[in-house]
Amino acid sequence: MEVRTIKVFTTVDNINLHTQVVDMSMTYGQQFGPTYLDGADVTKIKPHNSHEGKTFYVLPNDDTLRVEAFEYYHTTDPSFLGRYMSALNHTKKWKYPQVNGLTSIKWADNNCYLATALLTLQQIELKFNPPALQDAYYRARAGEAANFCALILAYCNKTVGELGDVRETMSYLFQHANLDSCKRVLNVVCKTCGQQQTTLKGVEAVMYMGTLSYEQFKKGVQIPCTCGKQATKYLVQQESPFVMMSAPPAQYELKHGTFTCASEYTGNYQCGHYKHITSKETLYCIDGALLTKSSEYKGPITDVFYKENSYTTTIK
């Protein structure tokens, strides 16, 4: 009895394709271990004539594949690729409408935090270190965002349907971005203890939790000093293409032309909904596939993004 075979390709990165001759009487799992086709788990399936010449994702289970996976995804987590594939199996079914010149995501599976993050990423200057993220990001900007969303979920250790947080998501993504040249110098002034300067680099240099107003941050924000008295913390120097200011959701007025974009969060910790506000020729609110415009805006804002380049204080 002759062994019926077909020729397929296996890959971990969709760049390096490895030619395989597979036995049609055995499952993919018996031949390769966990195997995925377009995100779908085909591990328990036997090869079919229609699979001839198709590319299958496999887990990096030998040295060659491990090197290829690390170079593309910059992670050695053995569960990463499987999590990416199972997320992709959902995100490829989502709709990605162009809204006001940006790629958004039609609401499904509690994905409003991903839509808000995706919209924000198209408006701030950011370059990702893992080629996987950078490639998928370019495709997302062009309207094909399924891979990018699935990668975000995998890097953030999230599953489809789980509630997510924009600030946490951005923080994970910033860790995989090139923020080497970003720098922030802060000064804390206390009447009792004097003053202390701190220099922050990388992710810490672009994120701040405690106030939404970048102007206020430049002037000074009140913080408790270690001595128990009130101290003032203010920005001395900022070198970065953008800054992200966050605070627990509270009524906040966004003035046209003073910011790049913002995240609105309605609801409580267990259950809520994100919308995205962007400042173009007027203010726009993007909620999944829905767009509304207004000249002014007041609502429960939790993150505001500002364009920056270089700032030095005039406070002496």
Score class of each variant (00 low, 15 high):
residue 17 L to C: 14
residue 21 V to Q: 15
residue 44 K to A: 14
residue 121 L to K: 04
residue 275 K to D: 02
residue 245 M to N: 00
residue 180 D to M: 10
residue 309 N to V: 11
residue 275 K to F: 00
residue 185 V to W: 05
residue 171 S to H: 15
residue 239 E to V: 12
residue 301 I to V: 09
residue 229 K to T: 10
residue 202 G to S: 06
residue 178 N to A: 12
residue 135 D to V: 08
residue 289 A to C: 07
residue 274 Y to I: 00
residue 175 Q to R: 13
residue 165 D to K: 05
residue 212 L to G: 03
residue 307 K to C: 14
residue 272 G to S: 02
residue 241 P to N: 07
residue 113 Y to C: 00
residue 181 S to Q: 13
residue 237 Q to S: 14
residue 95 K to Y: 05
residue 60 P to Q: 07
residue 203 V to S: 10
residue 209 M to I: 15
residue 271 C to W: 15
residue 223 I to Q: 10
residue 227 C to W: 01
residue 245 M to Y: 01
residue 258 T to Q: 12
residue 217 F to H: 03
residue 85 M to K: 06
residue 178 N to E: 15
residue 80 F to N: 04
residue 66 R to P: 07
residue 189 V to S: 12
residue 11 T to Q: 06
residue 2 E to F: 11
residue 230 Q to D: 10
residue 271 C to H: 13
residue 314 T to F: 15
residue 58 V to Y: 06
residue 84 Y to P: 01
residue 37 L to C: 11
residue 97 P to D: 09
residue 160 V to K: 02
residue 300 P to L: 13
residue 304 V to L: 04
residue 37 L to S: 12
residue 100 N to V: 06
residue 213 S to C: 09
residue 161 G to S: 06
residue 26 M to A: 14
residue 284 Y to D: 09
residue 50 S to E: 12
residue 226 T to K: 14
residue 86 S to I: 13
residue 248 P to V: 07
residue 107 W to C: 03
residue 156 C to S: 10
residue 230 Q to R: 11
residue 147 N to C: 11
residue 25 S to M: 12
residue 306 Y to S: 00
residue 107 W to I: 04
residue 63 D to S: 13
residue 47 P to A: 10
residue 43 T to C: 10
residue 166 V to Y: 06
residue 107 W to Y: 04
residue 279 S to F: 01
residue 34 P to L: 13
residue 127 K to V: 10
residue 46 K to Y: 13
residue 43 T to D: 11
residue 123 Q to C: 08
residue 39 G to Y: 10
residue 188 V to I: 09
residue 216 Q to D: 12
residue 111 N to L: 03
residue 228 G to Q: 05
residue 62 D to I: 07
residue 294 S to C: 14
residue 143 G to I: 03
residue 111 N to C: 00
residue 316 K to S: 15
residue 249 P to M: 01
residue 115 A to V: 04
residue 249 P to A: 01
residue 100 N to S: 13
residue 109 D to L: 03
residue 226 T to Q: 13
residue 103 T to H: 03
residue 117 A to P: 04
residue 296 E to P: 13
residue 18 H to N: 09
residue 170 M to R: 03
residue 111 N to S: 04
residue 67 V to F: 14
residue 233 K to N: 06
residue 186 L to V: 15
residue 95 K to G: 12
residue 253 E to R: 07
residue 131 P to Y: 05
residue 6 I to H: 07
residue 49 N to K: 14
residue 50 S to F: 14
residue 12 V to A: 07
residue 8 V to Y: 04
residue 206 V to Y: 02
residue 28 Y to V: 04
residue 155 Y to I: 03
residue 3 V to L: 14
residue 204 E to S: 08
residue 203 V to M: 09
residue 124 I to F: 06
residue 51 H to F: 06
residue 73 Y to K: 04
residue 249 P to S: 01
residue 131 P to L: 04
residue 100 N to I: 03
residue 56 F to C: 06
